[in-house]
């Protein structure tokens, strides 16, 4: 099964609902994770852990860069690239 951007966004919304304990809907590609959604370094990691479960993402902690966590778009790029590497392996 290959996931597209919409799948990742939907999974992010579900994960953020849980992590932030408030409804998060209508994410756009430009939505900024720190400034707009007010994620902090703790909730950012919690979101990642949720997505590991829901998307089957398996991140390598040494590959994680600050730039990937800037916006919904940059994070989606990162998640899709990780999933692709994993499927290819």
């Amino acid at each position: 099964m290959s996931l597209n951007r919409a799948d990742v966004t939907a999974a992010m919304e579900t994960a953020l609902n849980k992590v932030l304990d408030r409804p998060v809907t209508g994410l756009s590609g430009q939505t900024r994770l720190f400034d707009d959604l007010h994620l902090d370094s703790t909730t950012m990691l919690e979101m990642l852990m949720e997505l590991e479960d829901s998307l089957g993402l398996e991140v390598d902690p040494e590959e994680l860069e600050a730039d990937d966590f800037e916006t919904v778009d940059t994070f989606t790029d990162f998640a899709l690239a990780q999933l692709e590497t994993r499927n290819a392996a």
Partner: peptide, 15 residues
């Protein structure tokens, strides 16, 4: 550290 690098990227930032 910057707030953006002390979450998931912390390990990478330390390395």
């Amino acid at each position: 550290g910057h707030v953006a690098e002390v979450g998931p990227p912390l390990l990478r930032a330390l390395q």
